[in-house]
Amino acid sequence: MKPLFRDSFCIEGLSPHRALDRLARRGVRVFDACKTGPARLNFAVSAKDAEKVFAIFAGSCYTVTKTGSSRAKRLVAAVRRRPGFVCGAALFLALSFAADGLVLRVDVTGSAARYAARAEEVLAEAGIGVFSFYSEEAAGRARSRLLAEFADVAFAEVEKSGCVVRVTLEAGEIAEVPARKSELRAPASGEVEELTVLRGEACAEEGQQVAAGDVLVLGRVAGADGAYKETFVSARCVLRCGYAFTVAGGGEEAVRRALAAARLSAERDLLQGDAAELTVLEEHAAEQGGAIAVTLVLRLVLAVSY
């Protein structure tokens, strides 16, 4: 491989190619030898062999002239002639590198930017402030502390752009945790067809007749020591119950309207709270003294789950 730092020479004399032999015998490798005339030859040697060339041909019949250096060597020589420039450039690079890590300003943006003052304090406590050095580790700590500090902030980001630290705080809605049920009660009187309890204590059995308001599942569990511990209820119950509805009127058309009104009334009265589904199993209508009495047999599904 050709050396990076080379010196070029021009040698004049009879049979200048013999000069290459002399150099080769003395262990000097020659590169880019090119005949430029009948008695002239240009060649290059490694910069470390340049002095040897003159020593080898001292007192010989050859005229050796140094014509130049490789570009890399010229560049190094130019740099060596300007030490102040080199030092200045190195100092500039070092200062630029160091300054890039410095924080010169902190900006707080976002929908929760009203907390800017406290956010800057939190950053300072985490180690990020004006004229301090920025680190990802400190930014991570600050991020966590910002989220913990402000209850209504749903998003917090700390990032550095140039010499400015940008803090983004976004407010989020505080969602209320729904209250958990501690018992399941029968909304109407009827027979328990199914009862599945995942959490809590069953207070009724399948096939049992219950009255409206009776507790079907209680929110407690027995511990190993026999003591009860309060908990929330998770259960499903299918209740077969009746529903009575009376409306004034008579005739076939009035009966149909009464049946429809009874169904609507049953849904309005029973499909609330824990009741999830209502199915009409049977419906009976009877005309009695200018009024229509409607009796519905319903299947009511009650469910409490989390």
Binding site: K2, L20, L23, A24, G27, V28, R29, V30, F31, D32, A33, C34, K35, F43
Partner: peptide, 8 residues
């Protein structure tokens, strides 16, 4: 022709 390398 030019001698690009010569030696050893």
């Amino acid at each position: 022709l030019r001698i690009a390398r010569y030696g050893e």
